[in-house]
Amino acid sequence: MADTNIGTSLYAFEPTHIAPAIFAAIIGTSLLVHIFQSFYYRFWRVTFWMFWGGTVFTAGWIMRTLSSYDPDNKNLYIAQTCLVIGGPPIYAAAEYNIMGRLMNYLPMHAIFHPGRVVIVFIYLGALVEALTAAGAAKMAVSKGENISEYILGGKLISISLILQAVVECVFISFIALMHHRASRARMLSPNVRALCIMLYGTSTLVLLRCIFRAIDSFATHTAIDAEQCGSLCRLITNQEWYIYVFEATPMAIYTIWLNVMHPGKYLPRDKFQYLDLDGKTERVGPGWTDHRSQWQTFADPFDIANTIKGTPAHEKFWLQAETWPMATGGSFAQGTASNATRSLSGKKYRNISMKPEGGMA
Rank of each mutant, 00 (worst) to 15 (best):
V118Q: 14
F48Q: 06
S158N: 10
I111W: 06
R116V: 01
L83H: 04
H109R: 09
A140S: 13
N73P: 03
F48R: 13
T65W: 13
L152N: 13
G87E: 03
E129R: 10
L76G: 15
V128Q: 14
W49H: 09
I85W: 11
V56D: 08
F121C: 04
T65M: 11
P89S: 10
Y96F: 14
G87A: 00
K155P: 02
A130V: 02
I159L: 15
A94P: 00
E149M: 15
I122A: 05
G154Y: 09
I119D: 08
T65F: 09
A133M: 07
L156D: 12
L76Q: 08
C82V: 15
M99Q: 13
A140E: 07
L106V: 03
G87R: 07
A130Q: 03
I122D: 02
E149R: 15
G125M: 00
A93Y: 01
L127D: 05
Y91V: 03
A93Q: 05
G154T: 08
L106T: 03
G53R: 07
P71Q: 03
S158F: 10
N146H: 15
Q80N: 09
G53V: 00
G54K: 01
T132Y: 03
S142N: 15
L152C: 12
P114H: 01
A92L: 04
I122S: 03
L152I: 02
D72Y: 11
V141W: 06
L156F: 15
S142I: 01
L161H: 13
I62V: 10
Y150K: 07
W52M: 05
E145N: 15
L152F: 14
I151F: 04
K143V: 13
T65Y: 15
N97H: 09
A79Q: 04
M63D: 07
K74H: 11
N104A: 02
Y150S: 09
V120P: 03
F121N: 04
W61N: 06
G125Q: 02
W61G: 08
Y150E: 13
N97V: 00
I151L: 05
F51R: 02
Y69I: 05
I162G: 14
V117N: 07
A59H: 01
K138E: 12
Q80Y: 05
D72L: 05
C82R: 11
L102N: 11
L156M: 15
S67G: 12
E95F: 06
E129L: 14
